[in-house]
Amino acid sequence: MLFLPGTEGRKGEGGLRTEGYFKHSYVKRECERESERPNTVTDTNTNTNTNANTSHLTSNNNSWYITDSDNKPIKPAPPEIQQKINQYTTNQSTINQLPLISIITVVFNGEEYLEETILSVINQTYPNVEYIIIDGGSTDGTVDIIKKYEHAIDYWVSEPDKGIYDAMNKGIKLLTGEWVNFMNAGDKLLYLDHLSLVNCKTTNTCYYVKETEKLKKKESLTKLYLTHNTPCHQSVFYLRKELELYDLNYPIIADFEQMTRVCSKSFKPVYTKHLIFSAEAGFSYENTKDKSWKNLKARNYIVKKNMGLFYFTLALLHSLRIKFKKILSNLWD
Rank of each mutant, 00 (worst) to 15 (best):
W179P: 11
T212R: 06
L195P: 00
I146K: 02
S196Y: 00
K170Q: 02
H194F: 13
D166Y: 03
K217Q: 02
Y149H: 13
G137P: 10
D166E: 00
T176S: 11
S138R: 01
I145T: 06
D193H: 08
T202M: 00
W156V: 08
I164V: 15
H151M: 05
A152S: 15
K148S: 12
K214A: 07
I146H: 01
K210V: 13
K217A: 01
C232R: 07
K188S: 05
K170D: 00
E211Q: 07
I164N: 07
Y131Q: 10
D140C: 04
N199W: 06
Y208L: 06
N184P: 14
N199S: 13
K214Q: 07
I164L: 15
K147F: 11
C206S: 15
C200G: 10
K216L: 10
D166I: 01
K162P: 01
Y191P: 03
C206M: 10
L195W: 00
Y165H: 07
D135A: 11
D193I: 09
N128M: 01
G177Y: 05
E219Y: 13
K201I: 15
L174A: 06
E219N: 13
K210I: 05
E159H: 04
G177M: 12
V198I: 14
W179A: 10
E219V: 11
K147D: 12
V180W: 08
I133T: 14
T212S: 10
P160G: 03
L195Q: 13
E159Y: 06
K218H: 13
K223V: 13
E178Y: 03
P160L: 03
G136V: 12
L192W: 05
N128A: 00
D135C: 10
D193Y: 07
I146N: 02
I133N: 05
F182W: 13
K162E: 07
N169D: 08
